[in-house]
Every structure is written in C-alpha cells, then in structure tokens.
C-alpha cells in the first residue's frame, strides 16, 4: 500500500536525496536515513517538543511532519547551526550557563530559540518563554534556558555576521 518516493530537499544547507517510504516522518528520515541523530524524540505524538527542527526557518515538530511533504524545503537541524567552525552563540550560551543538563530537549530548544532570535533579535523574557512553551524540559526548570537565550541574543546583537545565515528560505 505504501510506496517509496525520492525525497529531495536541503538539509543544513546541503542538498540531500533519499528514497523513503511515504509513511515516514521527517524525524525518522533525519535520524534513520541521514543519521542526523541530534534530533531527539520523546513521544512521537507532538506532545513534548524534543524533535523540533526548522523547516524553512520555522520551528516544527519533525515527528508530525510527513517526509514526503518536505520535498524542496530547507531543513535545519542542530547539526547545522554552527558556522565557520564555531558554535552558534546559542550553543555556547547553553553550554556555559546551564541551559543544557541532560541535553535531550536541548537541540529542539536551541533551534526553536534560533527561529525566535532570527525574527526577534531583542526578544523579551516573556517572548522567550512563550516561544519555548512547546518544548518540555524536565531538568532545568527553564530559568537557565531563558538566561542562555538572553545571553545568546546579546552576543548576536554584538555580532551581526551571525544573523545572516539560518533563515534559509
């Protein structure tokens, strides 16, 4: 009943082509076909946010995205946000300020925060909380996550070169 189709899209700025089954989600394709295991999963039902990635710059849940519908899109995963051999400021801030404890919700949160800061470089604490309200974290209590995003935002404002890449639409 299912059929395989050739999915061609852009992943982290590079073209990718995979033969996948129509019932596969983007989560499965990223992890199992492209070996991009930085994208995590905590429920596969859209209830936790761990699998969040950016599709055309917007945060979506890869567990509820049909791979077939990603054709021609630009997908960004946690593996693809560093640049020039450097970590993204969000990654630095999360590592430095306790934004990542177990690290399992971290990729989804960093990508979601990136989409926010790309759009709203001076996001307030309330805006950060609201933007991250679809990413559950069981470790931190969110406060150090929010501080990490604020710190990264500051860093990014000082380094406008970092804002160029990312919204690969």
């Amino acid at each position: 009943m299912s059929h395989a189709f050739r999915l061609s899209f852009t992943v982290n700025g590079e073209p990718a082509e995979v033969l996948v089954d129509s019932s596969k989600t983007l989560l499965e394709v990223l992890r199992e076909d492209l070996n991009l295991t930085g994208t995590k999963h905590g429920c596969e039902l859209g209830e936790c946010g761990a699998c969040a990635i950016l599709v055309n710059g917007e945060p979506v849940l890869s567990c509820l995205a049909l791979a077939v519908e990603a054709t021609d899109s630009h997908v960004t995963t946690i593996e693809g946000i560093g640049q020039g051999g450097q970590l993204h400021p969000l990654q630095d801030a999360f590592a430095d300020l306790g934004g990542a404890q177990c690290g399992y919700c971290t990729p989804g949160i960093i990508l979601t925060a990136k989409a926010l800061l790309d759009r709203t470089p001076d996001a307030s604490a309330d805006q950060i909380k609201e933007a991250l309200s679809g990413n559950l974290c069981r470790c931190t209590g969110y406060l150090q996550i929010i501080e990490s995003v604020q710190k990264a935002a500051e860093e990014m404002r000082l380094r406008p070169d970092l804002q160029v890449r990312g919204t690969e639409t």
């Binding site: 059929h3 989600t25 049909l66």
Partner: peptide
C-alpha cells in the same frame, strides 16, 4: 518509536 501505519499518500 511510534510510527505511522502504511498508507498511500496523494498530493493534489
């Protein structure tokens, strides 16, 4: 991992 059952996908 929870996975989808098989189906035919059509995109009008």
């Amino acid at each position: 991992m929870m996975r989808l059952p098989a189906f035919t996908y059509r995109a009008p």
